[in-house]
């Protein structure tokens, strides 16, 4: 798929992107490399996998990582109960070897997301979400899949991929990932969006929102992100939640009351909310001087 074709597909999926993102996705697709995406929580890492699934017309297979995740949850597991039942039923069979062989066949194999993604008849998009939450052993286990697109099951042998999935790995940088894993992937870092991109996202996701309110929301969020005292910076997801909350309350203009009532949608801990009220960061960001341009109406600056 060429870059222009990909851009067209992303447009059709109603996804806001910049040239960097489109180029990285195109390169990753062209080389058939897994794509490792890093960035703060809520900047849209997981969304990329969903959009790519929709743009490429593929199913999305998702593996959510967590501490203690192992191959029985990620790759495959034998259906022990069914195997035992089969042994009981065929106990008197003459051909014991055939029975043993049959116990380790597809019939008793429970596919988990990784195996499913490479045995699928049609290529899929495989999302390995929050890989930094998984243990280092699991990372090492993924290497075979990521580099050779195959997995090894001791009882069966090596299973090569029927179709090659487009693999997206996401990480919040909670811990550094191994060099080996990084080397096998194309890399993308997503920063927080700038004002224009944030406005474009708001326009695409909430087209009915009042222009003035949209601008105020975007400016307020930008202002909060630049405040070093805020521990958990609001992400795009939180911006959308906040805008939706304001919209649901019928707010047309950002006032201190409206901010106070909806702050919980934007900031997720008490210290940050207090800090926002103290510094007045969630006003439109115009500092009270530039009302005409910011569209704030100027009334909440006292």
């Amino acid at each position: 798929m060429t870059l222009d074709e990909l851009k067209q597909k992303l447009d059709e999926a109603n996804y806001i992107y910049d040239d960097t993102l489109a180029t990285v996705l195109a390169v990753s697709l062209q080389l058939g490399r897994p794509l490792l995406i890093e960035g703060a929580a809520g900047v849209g890492k997981t969304e990329i996998a969903k959009v790519m699934a929709s743009a490429l017309g593929r199913d999305l297979v998702r593996l959510q990582c967590y501490e203690g995740l192992d191959e029985s949850k990620a790759l495959y597991e034998w259906n022990y109960q069914k195997q035992l039942l089969s042994i009981q039923v065929n106990m008197n069979s003459d051909d014991k070897d055939a029975l043993t062989r049959s116990l380790f066949s597809d019939e008793y194999l429970l596919e988990r997301p990784l195996l499913h993604s490479i045995r699928s008849e049609k290529p899929v998009v495989l999302l390995i979400d929050e890989i930094d939450k998984a243990d280092e052993e699991f990372e090492a286990f993924l290497l075979e899949l990521l580099s050779d697109m195959q997995v090894s099951i001791p009882e069966i042998g090596t299973i090569p991929a029927k179709t090659v999935p487009f693999v997206v790995l996401t990480s919040n940088r909670a811990r550094p990932l191994s060099e080996a894993l990084r080397r096998r992937c194309a890399y993308l870092y997503i920063p927080y969006p700038d004002l224009d991109k944030e406005l474009a996202i708001l326009r695409a996701k909430m087209p009915h929102l009042d222009d003035q309110l949209r601008l105020q929301v975007a400016k307020a969020v930008q202002s909060l992100r630049s405040n070093e005292a805020i521990l958990k910076k609001p992400s795009i997801a939180e911006t959308l939640d906040w805008a939706a909350a304001l919209d649901a309350l019928g707010v047309r203009e950002l006032t201190p009351d409206a901010i106070r009532n909806t702050a919980g949608f934007l900031l997720k801990n008490t210290e940050d909310i207090e800090c926002m009220h103290e510094t007045g960061d969630a006003d439109c960001g115009c500092g009270g001087h530039d009302h005409h341009n910011c569209g704030c109406g100027g009334h909440h600056h006292g």
Binding site: D19, V27, E38, A186
Partner: peptide
């Protein structure tokens, strides 16, 4: 040039620091 830079960065740099 910018497109080439982004594409090569994707291939060569594997972390923010490396970018």
């Amino acid at each position: 040039r910018e497109q080439v830079k982004t594409a090569l960065r994707t291939v060569y740099a594997k972390s923010r620091e490396e970018q």
